[in-house]
């Protein structure tokens, strides 16, 4: 600590300590702790806060699993119905959200890996990098506006339907919104740069001679990727996948604007509890469940693919 201040001087050193401390404590730890605290409390009108009714309870988490007291759904284990109530709606949405986030992540990965490889390794890619930077420009526009743009593109009278009908490929406009095509396209697009740039960074630092060496030793292209490029790019791939998965699972604007009438995203349920439901305690509990599940999922994936957390930070 003494060395730190000697290196940076008291002014800069003090600033760094205060800024980082403020960031970690006030912007990350305290809000999360507050939410964690609320999630274990009853939803009370302001007058009753602090009264004997204001006690810690697991009821919000219980609700996530079991639903309302009158809920007729029962948990079935291996085909045998038990007496345990079961919150079919919320759990299904939760699972669907996670699966959809996995799907969007994989979709982005499959789309971005070849592109990142091309930009990072081929000679033509070198001149294409400027164009890759142009990919950023749409992101100067607000996320919600971009979601609306997708709604316009995929709408009944949108560009895609107009072209398809105009070409005579379909008679009626296809309802991309109802079928959730617009939603997945929007989500896939929303965080695609967070996938492409980490992978590009990793692949770009791979010595091209290694690819040529593998080829010279008789390797077909797919084995070069499997044995040389992908292992090398793994930290970048993990970092991209983690960010896209986390952000997709936590996305609100795109599902709100692009989701079909029957589709519900778990974040929308959280939003409902906070907003229309006026039940912050329950919303907090749901948010904590989503956060912790996502963290566990990501850590498990990292374990499975043998990536250390330090490698991602590179």
């Amino acid at each position: 600590m003494k060395g730190f201040f000697e290196r940076n001087g008291p002014l800069l050193g003090g600033y760094l300590v205060i800024a980082v401390g403020f960031w970690v404590l006030v912007l990350i730890i305290l809000p999360q702790l507050a939410m964690l605290d609320i999630s274990f409390r009853n939803n009370l009108p302001p007058a009753l806060v602090g009264s004997e009714q204001d006690i810690y309870t697991l009821s919000n988490y219980e609700h996530f699993l079991k639903g309302n007291p009158g809920n007729p759904d029962r948990l079935a284990l291996f085909g045998i119905e038990t007496e345990v109530p079961f919150n079919r709606v919320d759990l299904a949405v939760f699972l669907k959200t996670l699966l959809a986030a996995v799907f969007v992540t994989l979709f982005d990965l499959i789309l971005c890996y070849p592109l990142a490889y091309f930009l990072g390794q081929s000679a033509i890619g070198a001149s294409g990098r400027v164009f890759a930077l142009l990919l950023i420009i749409p992101y100067w526009v607000n996320e919600i506006l971009r979601a609306f743009a997708f709604r316009i593109i995929f709408g009944d009278s949108g560009v895609i339907n107009t072209v398809l009908v105009g070409l005579g490929l379909i008679d009626q406009p296809y309802d991309f919104i109802r079928e959730n095509v617009a939603l997945y396209a929007g989500l896939g697009y929303a965080y695609i740069l967070l996938m492409i740039f980490p992978i590009y960074n990793a692949i770009e630092s791979l010595d091209h001679n290694q690819i040529e060496a593998a080829r010279d030793l008789g390797s077909p292209w797919w084995r070069i990727h499997w044995r040389v490029v992908i292992p090398f790019a793994k930290p970048g791939i993990t970092s991209g996948c983690t960010m896209v998965f986390m952000l997709t699972a936590g996305a609100l604007a795109a599902p709100q604007i692009l989701g079909g009438p029957s589709s519900l995203w778990f974040t929308q349920i959280i939003y409902q509890w906070f907003n229309t439901g006026q039940n912050w305690a329950r919303g907090s509990a749901y948010a904590v469940v989503l956060l912790i599940t996502c963290i566990i999922f990501v850590l498990a994936m990292m374990r499975l693919f043998r990536v250390k957390i330090g490698e991602i930070a590179k």
Partner: peptide, 10 residues
């Protein structure tokens, strides 16, 4: 088989 200047071991 080619041996590269920087060897290019994996």
């Amino acid at each position: 088989a080619l041996i590269f200047q920087n060897l290019a071991l994996f």
